[in-house]
Amino acid sequence: MRQSTPDSGNTLRQYRIVGLNLAVILVVLSAAAIVPRNGQALVIVYPWSDPGRVIEVIADAGGSVMNGTGAPYAAIAHSDEPGFAFRLFKSGAMLVLDGSLAFFCRSTSSP
């Protein structure tokens, strides 16, 4: 196979190009992994909020709580309406992830 034999400057440039592509790919794939699907979302509020704060946020976003987690500031919510994640952020959620990532918070029970 033909091997490119660039000098060090050229090699660094090649690494940079590949790194840029890889970064875009990782961002896209990570987004795909963490963006909620099927209306299920892991809702996380600020840890120092009141214990019932996460429930209020989900309720304000028009969703329903599907499951709790080991942490008081996180819960798995569901809504069939599109734009659920956006509404959750608007209601005061700190972070909204895909519902399947609830293992980060050691889910207490299965639905």
Binding site: N21, V24, V27, V28, A32, V35
Partner: peptide, 20 residues
Amino acid sequence: ADPVVVLGGGAAIAAVATLT
């Protein structure tokens, strides 16, 4: 799947690769 992630991500990946 989220259409923004799929379509936007697919376009971004294709665009960066095309630029390269």
